[in-house]
Design a protein around this nucleic acid. Sequence first.
DNA 1: CTGAAAGCGCTAACAC
DNA 2: GTGTTAGCGCTTTCAG
Lengths: 367, 367
Amino acid sequence: MVKERTRADKRPAKKAAPRGKAPAGSACRQSVDAGRERKVSIAQVAVHAGVSVATVSRVLNGSDAVREPTRSRVADSIVALGYRVNQLARSLRTDESRLLLTMVPDIGNPFYAQIVQGINEAVQARGYDMLLCETGGRVDHEKRFLELLHTRRVDGAICLDPDTVQQAQQSEAQRFPWVACCEFDAHAPVAYVGIDNRAAAREAVQYLVSRGHSRIAFVNSDMRFMYARERQNGYEDALRQAGIAARPDYSQSVNGLDFDAGQRAVARLLALDLRPTAVFAVSDTLAIGIMRGLRDAGLAVPTDMAVMGFDDISLASQVSPTLSTVAQPMRQLGLRAAELLLRQLDDPQARVKGIRLPHRLMRRESA
Amino acid sequence: MVKERTRADKRPAKKAAPRGKAPAGSACRQSVDAGRERKVSIAQVAVHAGVSVATVSRVLNGSDAVREPTRSRVADSIVALGYRVNQLARSLRTDESRLLLTMVPDIGNPFYAQIVQGINEAVQARGYDMLLCETGGRVDHEKRFLELLHTRRVDGAICLDPDTVQQAQQSEAQRFPWVACCEFDAHAPVAYVGIDNRAAAREAVQYLVSRGHSRIAFVNSDMRFMYARERQNGYEDALRQAGIAARPDYSQSVNGLDFDAGQRAVARLLALDLRPTAVFAVSDTLAIGIMRGLRDAGLAVPTDMAVMGFDDISLASQVSPTLSTVAQPMRQLGLRAAELLLRQLDDPQARVKGIRLPHRLMRRESA
DNA sequence: CTGAAAGCGCTAACAC
DNA sequence: GTGTTAGCGCTTTCAG
C-alpha cells in the first residue's frame, strides 16, 4: 500500500528556521513572543531549569523521586517557557495514545448523537480524546476501524455499528480492547452495554394489546442490526402470548431510520387489506415519520391508528400528538460504554462483562 | 485462535529485558499467525525485503526514486508481513498529524450534528481523521482546544463555538490554521464559512410582515453567539423597514436552544399585555418547543399565532403543523469549512477568505 | 538508485 | 535523587 504525500515543503529544518506552520498570511514570524516559543521541548526546559531531561520527565509524570526544590524549579521553567508535552512523542514511547475511537452509523440521528455525548463526557473526564468515525453503515468504512487502531495506535474503541461485532469474531480486532454499544452479541467475548431489546419490544406490544389492539403492525429497519432482530422477536412474543396470530404482511421492513423511511412505510400500511389499528416502530424517528404520513393521509392518531416508537429521543415529547415510546438511557449507554472501555484499559486482567441498562415504557398521547 | 490480548504485552515491557530491537528476530515472530504480527515495523519489512529502511520508506511515500524490481519486492513484503505505518512515529518526524479537531457546542442539536457530518465527510475523503470535542459552550472546555493543538500536534481545527473566535484574536491560536464555521467574525484574520444571518433574519421577518403580521415577537438565544446578535439586527431591520415600532418586550432571550427553552419562552410571550400574532425564533428546535407550548396553552398555529424557525433541520417538515423556517445548508457548511482548512494546510501561503453560503426561506404551514 | 545515520520529543532502565 | 543513554518507528539529508 503506497501512500502519496502531497504536502508541499515542510522539512524538519533544524534549528535554522523556526518550524511549525506559519499561519497563512502576513508576517508569519511575530515578534519574539515573550519567550513563549512555538515548540518547546523537554530538553529546553531541562536547560532552563539546570537539570537533566530525565528529571523534567519525572516532574511531568508526577514521580515522587524528585526533591522539592528541584521540582518547583522545573515547574517554574515549564511555565516560563510555555512548555507542552508532545503527546505524539510520548505515545510513540509508551505505546499508549490516550485516544479512543467511536464508530457510529449516523450522528444525524438524535439517538446516536446522544450516546456520543455520553461517550464524550466520560472520555474527556478521563483525559482521553475521542476520534469520531461516522460509517453510514457502509462496511468498507468499518475497515478504517482496524486501520486506525493500528495506524494511530488508538487505545481502544466503542462501536455502535452492527457489522463490526460480526467481524470481531474472526478478525484481529479481537486482540484489541473495544466495547460494543447497543449492537452486541451477548455470546461474543466482547464487553458491551445495551438494553434488553426483546423484552422492551415485548412490553411495548403488550401495552398496545392492553389498550385493546389486536391488529398491530410492526415497522422494522435493517435486519443487519441486532436490535432489529430482537425487537422482532419481542413483537412476536407479545402477539403469541396474547393469542394473536402474527400476520406476515403486518411486519414491514424499511431502509434506514429517518423520517422519510417512516413516511414511506405508511403507504404500505394503508394498502393492507385489513388495516391495522396500531403500529409499533423500532425507532422514534421512524414513528414520527409514520405519524406525519398518517396525517397526510387524513388519519388521526391515535384514534384511527395508534403509534408507538422506540428510544424516547427528546423530540418524542414535542410532536403532536406526543409519542408513546420505550425509553432507552442514551446518555448512560454511552457513558457506561466508555467507562467499561476505560476500565479495561486500566486493568487488562479485568474480564469485563456486558451490562444491560433498564428501559422504560413511556405512555403518551399517540398510543 | 488468537487469545484476547492484554494490555501488558502491548506495553514496553517494563520488567522484561531492556528494550531494544528484541522483537526483530525473536521467536514470537515465527508465530503460527501466517506472519501477521501485531507490530511490524519498517525495519522488519526492510529485512524481509532485503533492503534498507530508507528504501521501504521511499516506497511507502511513493517516491519515484525506487527502481521497479525493488519497489515490488518491498510492496510484497509489506503485504506479507501485514505492515501498517505507525502514524505516531511518522507524525513525530514530519510534524504533521493528519488529525483535525472539530469543536462543537452541542452535537445533540440536529443542526450541529449535520454540520459535523459534512465535516466528517470531507475529512475522511482526504485521509484525515477527526477529533471531536463537545464543549457544551463552556469556556474552560475551549481551553482544551489550544492544548490539543499543541499536545496532539493537531494540524488544524474547525470551530463552531463562539468564544473561540474571540480568543483567537489575541491568543496564540492565531498562529494555527483553523477555520470558523457558523460563528465567525468577518473582520478577524481567520477563514470562515457561514451564512448572512442578518439578511436571512430580515427576510424571515419580512415574510411575516407580508403575511399581515405587525405584532411580531422574537425569541433569541445567548447573545454570546454572533448569529444571535446578527439575527436580532435582521429582525430590527425588517421592522424598521416596515415602519413597525420595535417593542422591547417582544424580544425575548432564552438560555440554550433546546425544545424546553422554547416551551419556557411561550409563557412569557403569552403574558405580554398585547399578545403578538407571530413569533420568529432563531432556531428550529426553539420554534418547535414554542409550538408545543402554544398547543399546551390551547392555541392554534398559525391562526392564533404564527411561528417561524431557523435552520430547517429535517424535523421541521415532520412536525404538525410543518414549520416555516430559513434553511441553512448544514452539510455544505461543514464540508466547505473542512475543505477550506484542508486547502490552507496544503498551501500555507494561500490567503483563504471567508465564504458565505446561501440561505433559503421555506414557506410551510406554521407561518 | 540505495544505504547509513541523524534525529523528532519523550520515557525508563541503569548508573552514580 | 538525578543524570546518561538507548531507543519507540519513521523521514530525510548526505554519501556512495
